[in-house]
Design a protein around this nucleic acid. Structure first.
Lengths: 126, 126, 126, 126
DNA sequence: GTGGTCTAGACCACG
DNA sequence: GTGGTCTAGACCACC
């Protein structure tokens, strides 16, 4: 688990960590039930403060993506959340992405291709 | 052009304004060449500071989505065709959305449906 | 808004702050829509770190008890949450309190009296 | 005596054990004078460390709820009648519960009902 | 002015 | 060992 962080990005570091862990899980690099690195270890490896990593973990926990086990640290949760709520959130995000695409002259067909392409790329990492 | 702002959202207000204008353009409610409301008017209507609206407009200008003219205020630009750069940015955003979808148990087929569905919804507003 | 904190208590300071604010609202000392002191001010007054106060506020926000407005800081939310969920949580807490009472020889009648008594005490502060 | 522990809960495991034993006694599943399972047995059954169970037992002993005998292990104490002290502690706990209730729109009458309801539920287990 | 983020340490509770 | 809490300062984004 190596993180590549951009310290001069507008995206807060804890959010970058959260995003990369989420990507890692989605790409199958991290599997449900698997242990995540400890807060301390990840902080040391990545050159950030413990509390920053902690904040990312707390966020992921709150989102139901990981569970923090008192005995053995953080583990990846299995998927089980209610879709309806998730779809509402995703729709808003997707709409924004679609808007950006449109304004850059990318049409529906191209977006579908891009979606397919990204899925393949991500499945490949399994 | 009525904005619905959530002052307790994590998303900064200027970003909410930018997003809604972008959505408005993508949905065809605002067409290329059309004039946007003046900063002052939008600020008054929405109950926010003029500086905040200004920041949103500057951001949109910088993204090449609107043009700001001293005489006639802000107008919607025509579609920009610098796709390559845009696709890189969109890919990163889409990847994150796909990850979230996966972790909520939403598969590729459902995402394609959602994409189609949102396109129809947005075209409808034209 | 003066907090009385016990720095040697087992209860974390941020939780003591959260509890006292919750009590303050329930007793009517703080009314819905009213502004809470800023994080900085409360931190200074109470002799604790900003981040500790921040943690309390974040917790209250997450519990839907306060809202954090980007313009004017934190304000007390109006009550509107779904009761069913709340009752589940309250039941577990009350059950524990009842158990403790029983084991100390306090019977049902006494508990009802205590409940009434506390309600009067808290209403009095309105 | 089967414990249901949530390892990802915020409540420490030893406290969960203590709470469940207390509930068990209050509900009459465990009667004064009755023997509690040995530390080792409970630890094995529940998949936790012996030290953790020990901590829970020590806490219960300190609270005067159980007595620990070298020869026969832990036994449930008879009801302690030092009410005055107990009431102070209970009042603080109840006040917090009442606050939470109020903020969720649950009024005094509903709380009284809930109290009655929980008493019946707990008596039923006798 | 406000809150949001981050750091580099520290101590404690838990298991 | 783990995570949880806290501090005293700092810088930045937002309004």
């Amino acid at each position: 688990m190596i993180l590549s962080l951009d310290f001069s990005s507008e995206t807060p570091i804890y959010m970058q960590i959260r995003n990369q862990i989420m990507l890692g899980i989605a790409e199958g690099k991290l599997k449900p039930g698997e242990k995540l690195p400890s807060i301390r270890m990840l902080a040391d490896e990545s050159g950030v403060n413990m509390m920053t990593v902690n904040k990312a973990y707390q966020l992921l926990k709150q989102e139901g993506i990981i569970a923090i086990d008192r005995r053995s640290g953080a583990i990846v949760s299995s998927v089980n959340n209610n879709k309806t709520e998730a779809i509402t959130k995703l729709s808003a995000e997707l709409k924004l992405v679609i808007s950006e695409a449109k304004l850059k002259g990318i049409d529906k067909a191209e977006m579908r291709d891009l979606l397919d392409c990204l899925y393949e790329e991500m499945e490949g990492g399994k």
